[in-house]
Structures are given as structure tokens and as C-alpha cells.
């Protein structure tokens, strides 16, 4: 059984431009024209088997984030079906619920609870999380005193300690310095060796090549190509350089 299966998934958003006020509602009562739809995804089908890892590539606005949000079940497809069998943890949720006035310790506990850890699991893993983040004594200081890199490291440390079946990584490999990057990378590889599934979005094609074996290339919400990573990335690179204006590096 596939761990993630998208079957002809389409997703549109109505262009309401944040019109959520009473006057907009009343205007729409009289204005019966159908509002414009923006298709973020169109007819996307793919499946990920347990233990596989899939990279999603494409230009900005190609629908990568929408695809991940459907995979994490944050929103449902407008058409088609998306089946997910297992516990999903997304690194796109990095630092969700973090609050600057709370200490690192308090933020870790809240964030971990949000990501689905139980009280006991948090108590067990707390020291590992702090150790991984390398924040040291700062853990009892308010988060507003942290540097950006430090709070991102803390967020990443919580996320990798959730122990999901499917790990979703959205462009977060740029977190922290080289040492921390290496540590994250090692952690993700460990995760892969344990036979878990990985779904990655990044513009860093070289990192993706190390992490994933298959790739899905999205172009304006449609699947342009899906298959072995090397071929898809090559096709994407050729396409990108072809569409880059002459003279640009």
C-alpha cells in the first residue's frame, strides 16, 4: 500500500482578495458573476511507497507548497483524492506556535505538543532536543533574546524529534550554519535508513540529489515530469536554462 497516494488531485482558490467583510458578502448577493478561480494544482497524480523519498521541484508559484499542504492534510483537494497512511510531520511547521515572550523551554513544550508528542514523550526527549539545538543555558531565556539562527535551530530540533512515518521538508535546509546543516543532514539520513518516507521541497538541487531518489517536477500546477531524480532534475535544469533570458548567468 502506498504511504501517500494522489489521484488526479486538483486544487483551486477563489480570488476573493481577502473580502471577508459584511459589505463584500452583501455585494456578492447581487453580483452573481462567478468569481475567478486560481488553479494551484491540476490533475496531479503520484504515489510514494514506504521508504521511498520524493523531491518536489519547480519554480516559485508552481504549486509545491499547495501540494505539501494537501499531503499534511491542512487543506483538502477541490477535485480528486489524496490518501495518506501514516503520521506526517512537516518541517514546514518549523517553529509553529513559537512566542517571543516565552522561554525556549516553554516554546519547545508547546511546539512539541502541537506536533503531536505526548507529555511523557516530551519529558523523555527534552534533553535530546536541547542537546541537538545546541542552545545550552539559553533554554530558560525568553525567545526574543535568541538570534534568528538559534530559534530556527530550536524549531528544527523539535521537528526532527517527533518521529513521524513521513517527514516533509519545505525549504528549510538553509537553517543555521554549516555545522548545524551537517547535523540536520545526518539526522535526515538516519531517518531514511530507518525506512521512513521523505517528501522534500527545495531549490537546492544538489542537496535534493543526496536525500531523494525520485523527483516530481511541477510546472504551473501540473506534473511536468516524474521519475528517477537524476533524469527529472536534468530535464528541469535544461528547461530552466532555456527559459532564462540571454545574458543572465
Amino acid at each position: 500500500m502506498s504511504i501517500v497516494a494522489f489521484d488526479r488531485v486538483s486544487k483551486y482558490f477563489l480570488r476573493h482578495g481577502g473580502q471577508m467583510l459584511l459589505r463584500d458578502r452583501i455585494r456578492h448577493l447581487f453580483d452573481r458573476r462567478e468569481r475567478e478561480r486560481f488553479w494551484a494544482l491540476r490533475d496531479v497524480s503520484f504515489a510514494i511507497e514506504p521508504g521511498e523519498s520524493l523531491a518536489v521541484i519547480g519554480q516559485n508559484g508552481a504549486g509545491k507548497s499547495t501540494l505539501l499542504n494537501i499531503a499534511t492534510q491542512l487543506c483538502s483537494p477541490s477535485e480528486g483524492t489524496a490518501r495518506i497512511n501514516g503520521r506526517v510531520a512537516g518541517l514546514l511547521e518549523l517553529g509553529a506556535g513559537f512566542h517571543p515572550y516565552l522561554t525556549g523551554r516553554e516554546n519547545v513544550r508547546i511546539n512539541a505538543a502541537l506536533l503531536g508528542l505526548s507529555r511523557r514523550q516530551v519529558n523523555q526527549r527534552f534533553d535530546q532536543i536541547v542537546e541537538f539545538a545546541g542552545t545550552g543555558d539559553f533554554i530558560d531565556e525568553p525567545l526574543r533574546t535568541y538570534s534568528t539562527g538559534m530559534s530556527m535551530r530550536l524549531a528544527f530540533a523539535v521537528a526532527v524529534h517527533v518521529d513521524p512515518d513521513i517527514l516533509i521538508i519545505d525549504e528549510v535546509l538553509g537553517v543555521g550554519d554549516q555545522t548545524f546543516f551537517a547535523k540536520c543532514f545526518e539526522r535526515i539520513m538516519e531517518f531514511r535508513r530507518a525506512g521512513k518516507t521523505l517528501l522534500c521541497v527545495s531549490h537546492d538541487l544538489d542537496s535534493l540529489a543526496l536525500l531523494c531518489d525520485r523527483a516530481l517536477w511541477l510546472e504551473h500546477g501540473r506534473v511536468a515530469r516524474v521519475g528517477p531524480l537524476r533524469q527529472v532534475v536534468q530535464a528541469y535544469r535544461d528547461f530552466s536554462s532555456a527559459s532564462t533570458p540571454a545574458g543572465a548567468p
Binding site: Q73, S76, L114, G116, V122
Partner: peptide, 12 residues
């Protein structure tokens, strides 16, 4: 939406 969040609801 068929959201399946697995976690400790009381702790959350």
C-alpha cells in the same frame, strides 16, 4: 476534511 492528527489532546 479528514484530518488525522495523532497526539495527546489533553496535553495540547
Amino acid at each position: 476534511s479528514a484530518m488525522r492528527w495523532r497526539g495527546d489532546l489533553l496535553f495540547l
